[in-house]
Amino acid sequence: MYFHTFHLFITVAYLGTLTEEALNIFKKPLDRLELKYGFFPEQLRIQMLEEAKKMFYFGYDSYMEHAFPLDELNPIKCSGRGPDYNNPSNININDILGDYCLTLVDSLTTLAVIGNVSEFQHAVAQVIQHVNFDKDNIVQVFEVNIRVLGALISTHLLMTDPEQPFGNLSPPWYDGELLHLAHDLASRLLPAFEGSSTGIPYPRVNLRQGLPPYSASETCTAGAGSLVVEFGVLSRLLGDPVYEGYARRANKALWNLRDNTTGLLGNTIDASSGKWLGRLSGLGAGLDSFYEYLLKSYILFGEHEDYEMFSEAYSKIKQYMRKGYAI
């Protein structure tokens, strides 16, 4: 989940809400392995830095040459691809490829961090020119949130940060266009929440038409409960509590459905009925980022309820998870 992990630290740095109390949760003595392997020698760090840049540019340059403005590069055919219009049920492709220059949007913050200001500004201009979310495409709310919405918000914050920690990224012509795109996209995701009587969002929306007829209601805990960071930052940037409110409502709905005995959550749930469909609990796919976002949200916004939920979940995981309990 490296996309939204990186975006979190950008938003923390910009919003300045990281408190001493929030930092204290990370303070602990280093163990033997951390002392031995917890850092890179400077020469190795520089070597790995250059290797990472080479890998990024290989992928980015290949995408821009062979695939842009489609969503991603098909490495076998060396050509671009977007949604699979011939097979709408192909969710492996259609859940995230929505015809909005996905790879370019996904690359914006990396270009900033590695210090390529000219290409960063060029990429921002390309996004403003080519990205449009008024598409008759069904996409997954969770994936679009962490990869597209998070990238747009983070890039906007980088350009408008008065301290400019990665250099002078903001071109004179920038006028908040990425924030406007983020606002538009988030509004197109809201039908997933508005159509749910439980507060748990449906997993997919049509970007143009809203909640699809006969939409599947099975969603995973992570997908429904990992939205508050991006939605919360957007609400605060816009001065509109609606987005954060829906994301927090989803978290509380999931939390209130945890098992009465173990306090654990299942991995899949019916958004329309609130009934667990997958009763196995764990820390892997389907659950992982729900816990992650509780802690990140507390660090970012300072809401104690988030930390209380995280702490209780952490305690129950340590108590029951090694024994293989289901809910």
Rank of each mutant, 00 (worst) to 15 (best):
G167I: 06
M48W: 15
S62R: 13
A313D: 13
S62W: 06
G210V: 03
I10G: 05
M159I: 00
K36F: 13
A125D: 15
R147K: 07
H180L: 14
Y307L: 15
T17S: 02
R188F: 06
L70P: 01
T17D: 00
L149T: 05
N137K: 11
P88V: 07
V205F: 13
G284R: 01
G223I: 02
I153L: 14
T109C: 15
K296Y: 09
H183V: 07
G150M: 01
L169Q: 10
L181S: 06
L185I: 11
F166M: 08
D175Q: 13
F290T: 01
P212F: 00
R188L: 09
L254S: 08
K54A: 13
G167H: 06
M64P: 04
F40R: 03
D184L: 07
D161N: 15
A285P: 00
T17K: 03
V127Q: 11
G98Q: 08
F58T: 12
E163K: 11
L15C: 08
D184E: 14
V105K: 02
K252R: 08
F3V: 00
F133A: 12
Y100W: 13
L265N: 10
P201K: 10
A125M: 10
E308M: 11
G16V: 04
G38T: 10
T11S: 15
A250D: 07
P212W: 02
V205A: 07
L73Y: 02
T261I: 06
H183E: 13
Q43Y: 08
I96C: 01
D288W: 01
Q47L: 09
Y57A: 13
T262P: 04
S226R: 01
L23K: 15
